[in-house]
């Protein structure tokens, strides 16, 4: 499975995507753990990031379907200061 990275996550990890193996039926929470074990430097940012599965935000309890398009979505703070 490929996890796409963007913005600060890409910068912290030093790569545009992460390739990892997930068991069938794994959840988004397990996916987060798998990402952290490969890239511990992402820990603080990942905690504040959402995971998108097939271009929809997914809760930690959601199952990641086989072959899903997965991306790490750091906080979207286009205009933190109004």
């Amino acid at each position: 499975m490929i996890v796409q990275l963007f913005a600060g996550a890409r910068e912290l990890a030093g790569v545009a995507s992460i390739s990892l193996e997930l068991p069938a039926g794994a959840t988004v929470a397990e996916l987060r753990q798998a990402i952290l074990s490969l890239h511990p430097g992402l820990t603080p940012l990942l905690a504040r990031s959402r995971i998108a599965v097939n271009q929809e935000f997914a809760d930690d309890s959601a199952i990641v379907p086989e072959g899903a398009e997965v991306a790490l979505i750091p906080p979207v703070s286009g205009g933190a200061a109004p």
């Binding site: 963007f6 913005a7 600060g8 998108a52 750091p74 979207v76 286009g78 933190a80």
Partner: peptide, 27 residues
Amino acid sequence: QVKQLVPIWKQENAPDGSATWAHGADS
């Protein structure tokens, strides 16, 4: 809604050449 739901990010580039992705307080 755009600021909350749409995955677009901005990187602030300062006069000293440093660049920071705006991900909120402690990124």
